[in-house]
Amino acid sequence: MAQCHLSDPSMPKSTKSHLMKVLREAGIIRNQALGRGRLLTLRREDLDARFPGLIDSVLKSPA
């Protein structure tokens, strides 16, 4: 699992929250309570079942 930090100080907190909401509602990420915080994880199995090979091709693409 990779960690993703939205640490750009120029990005408003509301924008970050909206981005996470859009990804969650689209079924891209899973949002789990973890103590006082949240754990966001990629729904890899679901995405691979629906779009075989997509995640692998994105991760292997040149930057």
Rank of each mutant, 00 (worst) to 15 (best):
E25G: 04
I29Q: 01
C4E: 02
L39T: 12
P62A: 12
G53Y: 09
Q32D: 12
L59P: 04
D56N: 15
P62F: 12
G35V: 02
R43I: 00
P62C: 09
G27S: 00
L40P: 00
P12S: 04
K60D: 13
K21P: 07
D8H: 13
A63S: 15
T15P: 06
K16I: 10
A63D: 07
C4Q: 03
H18K: 15
H18M: 12
H5F: 13
P9C: 09
P52G: 11
T15F: 12
P12L: 03
G35N: 03
L34C: 10
M1K: 13
S61E: 08
P52S: 12
M1N: 13
R44Y: 08
L23K: 04
G37P: 00
V22C: 04
D46I: 01
A33L: 08
D46Y: 00
L59H: 09
L23P: 03
M11Q: 14
H5S: 11
L34W: 07
S10A: 13
R43F: 02
D8K: 12
L42Y: 05
V58P: 01
D46Q: 05
A33K: 14
P12K: 08
A26I: 00
L6P: 00
R30T: 03
S57K: 13
V22E: 01
L47G: 05
S17F: 06
M20R: 14
R38Q: 11
A26P: 08
C4S: 05
I29T: 02
R50P: 01
G37F: 08
I29H: 01
L34G: 08
P52R: 03
L40F: 10
A49M: 10
V58C: 12
I55F: 13
H5Y: 14
R30A: 00
R43C: 07
V58S: 06
T41N: 11
R50A: 06
R24E: 02
L23R: 00
E45V: 10
Q3T: 06
I55Y: 11
G35L: 02
G35K: 02
A2H: 10
S61W: 09
V22Y: 01
A2W: 07
S61I: 03
D48L: 02
V58F: 12
G53F: 11
R44G: 01
L42S: 05
V22R: 03
T41S: 14
I29G: 00
D48M: 04
K60V: 08
A33R: 15
F51H: 14
I28S: 00
I55E: 08
I28T: 07
F51N: 06
M1L: 11
R43G: 01
N31F: 08
R38L: 08
R43S: 08
A33S: 15
L34D: 14
K21Y: 09
R24A: 01
A49L: 12
M11V: 15
L19V: 10
L54C: 03
K21G: 07
A63P: 04
I28F: 08
A26L: 02
L54K: 04
D8A: 09
A33N: 10
M11R: 13
D46C: 02
M1G: 09
M1I: 05
I28Y: 13
L47E: 06
L54N: 01
S7K: 06
D8Q: 11
S7Q: 05
A63H: 10
G53P: 05
I29C: 00
I28L: 10
D56H: 14
L42W: 05
S17P: 07
R38Y: 10
D8T: 11
D46H: 01
R30P: 02
M1S: 13
D48H: 10
C4I: 11
H5K: 13
R36N: 07
